[in-house]
Design a protein around this nucleic acid. Structure first.
Length: 845
RNA sequence: GCCGGGGUGGCGAAAUUGGUGAGACGCGCCUGACUUAAAAUCAGGUGUCCCCCCGUGGGGCGUGCGGGUUCGAAUCCCGCCCCCGGCACCA
């Protein structure tokens, strides 16, 4: 015993004689007449973690395929990126998942709760460059450390299913899936403008561009034209949008995806170029304003621009303008004042045959629509500003209901559906929405237009000119062109190289021994594709591999997928709202069409845990403001840290990390420890009395908070309340029952102490395998309740009354109360409102 | 600007379909017990203002601001202010 407990003056005397120094004479856990063992989280936690590991307590063997799937529960959390170790933000994410895992297991479900590592990617590669060590070494060290942290947290993970995307066993199947996508026409090559960071000498993914700047170094991003690999996910734009109705997801995530897809309905209209006999299509959402189109604008990158000005006096000026625009970065182009240049050409407005000038201007983007617009300055802000700048005509063709003129200067672009057309030939007077359809139909009959839909969504660019990723398994052959690597030759192993520094092309280009291969088709000397895949490809299917992680003849067995998928609960951060979640949804649809899976939406239920902030911004390695859980765990134990991270606030709300509340969790655990050991000496009593009632109320509350509401903070608070009640009178009837209930309910949140005390109370079974406690509805019914009596909505008295009373009796009792009488003031009761089991409100007039 | 989410004590928060006494639970703080002392632990108190026969008393006000609906509003409606997040030349 390393701590001496003082319990009497006699003991004090003995301690004095033994010359025990004062600091050791704690009275901390003093219990009259006994010496109680102190709560030592480190010892307890180590003990149970060893047992869980030895018994593979949370491993989930493959199910019997004949089992009906009703009882399964696939609990999935977004896997960590092993660029460092876990911080308290991760702890929050996985502790929430852990609570759900325990709850579902103990509620009788067959739960799959796996873990893995998103171990390819830029962060590890940059660390490799910085530290001059291979990325493989770095991520594998980190994985070791993260696994140790996870085990030290006591999370109920199936360690038999651990995967990491950088292992050949894993990326072999990422490559295999790529080949399937290629065969299906879903993977294809095209030339595209991509985002390029001159400082890092590398292409950036869209998600690595924040406000037009490189996320890491802050350099302004440029545009570069490269031939790249894409996945054709724009083909699924409508389904990705429409299926959102089926998803039980946070509204903000759905909103972000909706916006990202950016479906807008309108029309494609054809404008004829005078003298050249060319038609140029424009996309517009406002075909009703076509009579107000007073000029026509092409994006500087529009392929027809050179042809329009070829050999004309405007050629030099226009091409010069195009060149100058190209030199601008995205940011500069967006921030600069919009300008343009006249091409000398004219287009014909298909509605009124008007001859309108064609301009080239940088406010029109090649990426959206057709890269050309009809400009209607009267009804579009940007067109209006441009018209003002270059003194181009503004013709009003839409006015508000009951007016002849737009209300004010500038562009009138209200969309209240009450607007009417003016000066628009036979469409004048027609309401705007109607006119949209009528005009498109009218132009359609003359072959000058048709309804059209435009999307913001672009195809997914998956090539990366980087080393640390899954090699794209194709070969470039001078005779055969692009040749996929035969399935039997997979994996295409990522070779070890010395120099990872980005040079504007993949570092793999320099691995001559690796890159030179005979063409699989003709045998001639060919070169491997040197680009690797975006790591979002890995994370688009990792959760399928968990179902069958050691399969070496296929990515996974369909029967196992059919059993486990779709995921019952996905938990992760909001930062993946668009990219990862949209990509994974796309993958599911393609895999479904390939016959590999039987579903089209992988994650019917999504929960976003809130970020943990530190110093005003969210905690992340990149920001350098991480707080490690390690010291806290070492000092206070994993249970205290787990409880605190759950208790700190609503699970989906952002919270600031401050550790001053942690102490309270330790106090609670010590109190729990004390009452449990004290109660352990009591005989089992029948569940009755106030404590038993309170215990059942707590079961109801914690069950609902955990299973339905994900309100882990109030679930913990409810158990605290119960333990507080017990500690007020630990010898009360049913105290033992109440303690056992508290242990059972806190087990998902603080599994170590719960297990230890459960055992110490004499239970031979394992609490983590024990059925979730059931509410006895009879125990929720109280014999009396506190009746609130109001007069005119103000509380005037509270009465303890039997639950059995009728409404009439309640009203009678209320009227008899002297306090109520005083406020009735002899007035006549006009109305009585009775809320059963709660209140009576007397309305006097 | 558009979209999404918020605004409750000194602090983190709770109040689940409008049902009451707002502020559970925890932190902090205050008082007391224990101690030579401190820590720890335990017990009690802690929105705010006022009144008195100072008590297990009575009352007013209070959930960003201003209105409204209702017997009753933190919760619903209208108008505003502020904060956070996402998107933003999207034709």
């Amino acid at each position: 015993m390393d701590v001496v407990l003082v319990q009497s003056e006699f003991d004090a005397l003995v301690l004095d004689l033994l010359e025990v120094p004062w600091p050791l004479r704690t009275r901390g856990f003093f219990v009259p007449g006994d010496v109680m063992e102190r709560y030592e989280p480190q010892a307890i936690e180590e003990k149970w973690q060893r047992i869980w590991a030895d018994e593979r307590a949370f491993s989930t063997p493959d199910p019997d395929p004949n089992d009906p799937p009703d009882g399964k529960y696939y609990m999935l959390e977004m896997l960590p990126y092993p660029s460092g170790t876990l911080h308290v933000g991760h702890v929050r994410n996985y502790t929430q998942g852990d609570v759900v895992t325990h709850f579902q297991r103990r509620s009788g479900r067959y739960v799959l709760r796996p873990m893995g590592y998103d171990s390819f990617g830029l962060n590890a590669e940059n660390a490799a460059i910085r530290e001059r060590r291979p990325p493989k070494l770095i991520v594998e060290e980190n994985i070791e450390a993260i696994r140790a942290q996870m085990q030290r947290m006591g999370w109920a993970i199936d360690w038999d299913r651990e995967i990491a995307s950088h292992t050949p066993e894993m990326y072999r199947w990422t490559q295999w899936l790529f080949l399937k996508f290629f065969e299906a026409g879903q993977a294809f090559r095209k030339e595209a403008h991509v985002k390029w960071c001159a400082n890092d000498q590398t292409v950036l993914a869209n998600e690595q561009v924040i406000d037009g700047r490189c996320e890491r170094c802050g350099a302004v991003v440029e545009s570069k034209n490269l031939e790249q690999w894409f996945f054709r996910y724009t083909a699924y734009a409508d389904e990705l949008l429409d299926n959102m109705a089926l998803l039980d997801w946070p509204e903000r995530v759905l909103a972000m995806q909706r916006h990202w897809i950016g479906r807008s309905e309108g029309a494609e209209l054809l404008f004829r170029i005078e003298d050249l006999d060319i038609d140029i299509p424009v996309f517009t959402t406002r075909p009703d304003t076509i009579f107000g189109a007073t000029f026509f604008v092409l994006a500087p990158e529009h392929p027809l621009v050179p042809k329009l000005v070829e050999g004309t006096p405007h050629e030099t000026e226009v091409l010069d303008y195009v060149r100058r625009t190209a030199a601008h970065t995205f940011v500069e182009r967006e921030e600069k004042e919009k300008d343009g240049v006249f091409t000398g050409r004219f287009a014909t407005n298909p509605a009124n045959e008007a001859r309108i000038p064609i301009w080239v201007a940088d406010y029109v983007l090649m990426e959206y629509g057709s890269g050309a617009i009809m400009a209607v300055p009267a009804h579009d802000e940007r067109d209006y500003e441009f018209a003002r700048r270059y003194d181009l005509p503004v013709t009003t063709v839409v006015v508000p209901a009951g007016a002849d003129e737009p209300p004010e200067q500038g562009a009138f672009s209200e969309h209240t559906d009450n607007e009417r057309l003016v000066d628009s030939a036979q469409f004048s007077g027609m309401p705007s929405p109607e006119a949209k359809k009528a005009i498109v139909e009218w132009l359609g009959q003359r072959g000058r237009g048709r309804p059209a839909v435009s999307y913001r969504l672009r195809d997914w660019l998956i090539s990366r000119q980087r080393y640390w990723g899954t090699p794209i398994p194709v070969v470039h052959c001078p005779s055969c062109g692009i040749v996929p690597v035969p399935e039997n030759d997979l994996p295409v192993l990522l070779p070890e190289i010395d120099d990872y520094t980005p040079k504007g092309k993949s570092p793999l280009e320099a691995a001559e021994d690796w890159i030179r291969v005979p063409c699989p088709r003709c045998g001639e000397e060919a070169r491997r594709e040197a680009d690797t895949m975006d790591t979002f490809v890995d994370s688009s299917w990792y959760f399928l591999r968990y179902c069958d992680p050691r399969n070496d003849s296929a990515p996974f067995d369909r029967a196992l997928i059919d059993y486990w998928l779709p995921v019952d609960q996905y938990i992760g951060g909001i930062e993946h709202a668009v990219m990862h979640l949209l990509y994974a949804r796309y993958f599911a649809k393609v895999l479904n069409e390939l016959g590999l899976v039987g579903f089209r939406e992988p994650f019917p239920r999504l929960f976003n845990h809130g970020w943990v902030h530190m110093g005003g911004t969210k905690m992340s390695k990149t920001k350098g403001n991480v707080v490690s859980p390690d010291d806290y765990v070492r000092e206070l134990g994993a249970d205290a840290v787990r409880l605190y991270i759950l208790f700190i606030g609503p699970a989906d709300a952002e919270v600031d990390w401050q550790d001053d509340g942690l102490e309270g969790m330790t106090r609670f655990l010590r109190r729990l420890w004390r009452v449990a050991l004290e109660v352990g000496e009591l005989p089992d009593t029948p569940a009755e009395g106030p404590l038993a009632h309170k215990a059942h109320e707590t079961i109801a509350k914690v069950t609902d908070d955990t299973g339905r509401r994900f309100a882990f903070n109030t679930a913990v608070a409810a158990v605290m309340e119960l333990v507080n009640d017990i500690s007020r009178d630990p010898r009360a009837t049913s105290a033992r029952f109440a303690v056992e209930t508290a242990l059972s309910l806190i087990q998902p949140s603080a599994p170590h102490i719960a297990e230890e005390l459960w055992q110490r109370l004499g239970h031979a079974d394992r609490l983590w395998e024990a059925p979730w406690p059931q509410v006895d509805p009879a125990m929720l019914v109280r014999e009396t309740f506190e009746l609130v009596v109001q007069v005119n909505g103000r509380v005037r008295d509270r009465l303890q009354v039997p639950t059995s009373l009728s409404e009439e009796e309640l009203v009678e009792l209320a009227k008899e109360s002297p306090k109520v009488q005083a406020h009735l003031d002899g007035g006549k009761i006009r109305q009585t409102i009775v809320v059963p089991r709660k209140l009576v409100n007397l309305v006097v007039g």
